[in-house]
Structures are given as C-alpha cells and as structure tokens.
Nucleic acid binder design. Structure first.
Lengths: 126, 126, 126, 126
DNA sequence: GTGGTCTAGACCACA
DNA sequence: GTGGTCTAGACCACA
C-alpha cells in the first residue's frame, strides 16, 4: 500500500501522512475504509509504532482520517479537510514556482520538469 | 535590502543565501557591488553573526560572492556560479513537483500554475 | 432507537449508556419497557456484543435498567438511579465549564450559551 | 507560568496546549513572545521533553505558536488560529450544555455551576 | 487487538 | 542551546 523512501530525506512520518492523502486523492482508498492498524503498518514498514502513531494523530487532527479506540482508524470523507490539503499543496507549489522563477529558472524548464516527473515510472510505484 | 520571514520555516541561513542570489538575478545588485559586513547585516536582521557568516561562506564557496581581506565581500559576476545556482534551483523545483504530486496535485494543475505565475506581472514585484 | 456517531470520539459504550438515559428522560421510553437484547442491539448498531453487554451492566448497576433472567432487560423507574445520573451529569458539566474556561471562554459567553440552548426549540429535536 | 494537575485525568500534553492558549487569551502572553524551550519547560514541569515537544508541535500545526529551529518557539499573533480555537471551545461547550440538558440538568443548575467555577479561587491558580 | 499517552534516550539540523 | 525526528518499550482505556 505504502512504500517509504528512507534516502529521500523526507521524514518517515510525513511520507506516511502524504501517502494516505494521496491514496484518497487517487481514489485508491474511499471514505470509511479501514486503515492498517498502527502496529501492523509499523511492522510492515519496519518503523517504530510511535512514528506511525504520530502520522495517524496528525492525519486525524486535520480531519483526513478518524480513529475509534479499540476499533481502528478509518479514512474520512470530510471534503473540507481534503480540499484544505489540496489548497495547501497548491499554495506550496505556487511558492516553489515563484522562488524558482526568481532564481532564474525559465518557464520552459519548469514545464519540462513537471512533464518529466509525471512520466517517471519509478515515482508511480509509491 | 533583505527581509527575513522567521515564521516561514525556511532556515535563516538559506533565506540570506537566496536573498543575495535573488538581488543579483533581479538586477538590484550588480557585479563587484559591496555586500554589508557580516556584523552589520547580522545586527540589521537581528540574527546571530554566525548565521550570516555561514551564509557568506556558502555564497563564496559557490562563487556567488568573493571576499577581499580587510575590504569586505562583493557580488561576483561569475557565470559558473550562476549555472550552479541554476542547477540547485532546478533540483529544488523537482522536489517540489514530486511532493505536490504525492499530495494529489494533477499535472494539469501544476502546468497551469506555472503558466499563471509567468504571466502574472504582480509576481515580479515580489 | 439509538444512533452512534463513531467519528465523535465518544466511546461507543458511553454512547449506548447515554442513549438509554436520554430515551427515558425524553419520555421516548417509559418504566418497565423492554430493551432490545444485547445481541439484537449489537447487530443493529454493528458493534461488538461485549460493548453492549458492558453498557447494559453499567446501566443495571446504576439502577437505570433491571434484568430478568430469561426475559431480558427493562427500563427502570428508580428515582435514586435518576439522581445518580443527575449527579454524574452535573460533574461532567462542571468539567466542561472548567475546560472551556481554560481555553479562554468568558463567563458571559457561557451564560449566554446556556440561555440560548434553553430557549432554542430546535435543540429539543436533537 | 503553567501548572499541571496530574490527578485531573486530562493528558499532560493537553494541559500544556490549553495552558498556552489560555495565557494568550488572557493577555498574559502576547504575539512574538518567546515560550520556554522544550527542555526548559519539561524540566520545570518534571515531564518528558517528548511530551512538551508534542504539545508545541500541535500548537504550531494549529497556528497558535511558531517555531524557529535553533532560536526557539514564539507565540503567534494569528488571529484566525486563535479565533478558530475560541470557536471550537464554544462549540464544545454548546454540545456539553445540550447533553447536560438531555440528561435532565436544569437551566438554573447550569448557570450556578458556571458562576461557581468562575468564582472558584483554586481554579485561578492554574 | 486497537488507538493513545508517556518516559527514556539517541541523533540531526540550525543558530 | 533550540526545535525536530526517531527508536524502544511500558501502560492505559476501549472493543
């Protein structure tokens, strides 16, 4: 379901968070679908349960998932939460474009970079 | 000259580095123009002189500025330095695209964002 | 009869307990009225029978319901039970006031909220 | 500055979070004021630094404070964040009033409870 | 079993 | 020194 890239420099916790957001955005997971338990995912990813717990806590606090003690964690269908994340991602990307432009990157270079990453088969295996 | 955003999460050292690169790219500073002294800038920005020192060292080691003992630091006109910066900007932008993709942004949204920012006159004043 | 909100964060067992107390307080259920069997309710609510069993046990131990072997559980009319519930409700409310105060709500805001909800006819349908 | 009540049942992390929200709401702390460092507060409160770190992380993610690596954490002046918290507290309190009403508490009992807690000197020592 | 909290202690980047 | 991430492992409430 999720695959980590330990060499990427992106914190494990963030990779888990982003992974579930993406699974929902892509329609791979749907509302009220059960997530793997904290311990199960930790074991599969070979990371500490605390790290998964932290990711789940952040996902819950932002409304992406909801947790029921003793039952498990479930994907939320809260449109507001998911669109808020989408908006934040869009804003962050806009900032990145502005910064890159200021540092001298041309429009063409950026367009090509976007195309390249979307046609990059490796990145699809996530 | 430079303005820091402590709340942005971007390391202060990086903000200083990017700031001078930007000032050169935008034509606000030109080749051989003198930079403020480490202590002066540190005092103006209310940051630790060590942080400014570190930024200057990185800028010098990458050829963006050069130092003359007893005189100070000056903006360089080194073309190689510019291409190094260009490469770093390209790498940073690629990472931003990957993360945005991970969070569910579509290729189309990204392409449109790039187009928008390049046709946006306001963004030039940033 | 009862409806659970898994996303509310309130333990399922508590929701069942409060649900029956409310049904009695609102007059929807009356004294000696039969409750659904543990298994029946568990199946309808899609929860673990142990959870319903626990809720019934707590309701019985506090006198809100009573059980007859081989016949089932029934709503009680025990006045003492009601006062026990009343005390618990008062304690819970006090905690809520303390927390709200801790988070900066003014006395006035709280008093107005109480007034509003008691003059709010819609809230009776909840 | 902050005082914990270990017997209250409220998680330590939450008490720290609520404490700083309250200090800002009451005007005891103002925008851009420095918070004690993670380790300093942990030592003063005799709790684990991780617990304080978690509280600071949650406060930052909700915009109540902002952190600068190597410099410290500072109270934010983000009106939106603080009013969002205020709104949440008000909503939570409204829910508590509704529940209490359903469980049979009278308007008078609630008003008196609010008055009592606001005239309670012990609660002011927090 | 499942989520949640906490302590203990290591390690990293940044200032 | 300061924030941030992570592992290791205990313990609790709830189902």
């Amino acid at each position: 379901m999720l695959q980590l890239d330990l060499k990427s420099g992106v914190p494990i916790c963030d990779q888990i968070i982003n992974g579930f957001i993406r699974l929902k955005a892509l329609g791979v997971m749907s509302g009220d679908e059960k997530l793997p338990s904290v311990r199960e995912l930790a074991s599969k990813l070979s990371v500490n349960p605390n790290t998964v717990q932290k990711a789940y806590a952040i996902l819950e606090s932002s409304g992406v998932i909801y947790s029921v003690k003793g039952k498990g964690s479930f994907m939320s269908d809260d449109g507001n939460a998911h669109s808020a994340i989408h908006n934040k991602a869009l804003t962050d990307f806009s900032v990145a474009v502005s910064v890159a432009k200021q540092l001298g990157l041309s429009k063409n270079e950026m367009l090509k970079t976007v195309e390249r990453i979307f046609s990059d088969k490796e990145s699809e295996t996530l």
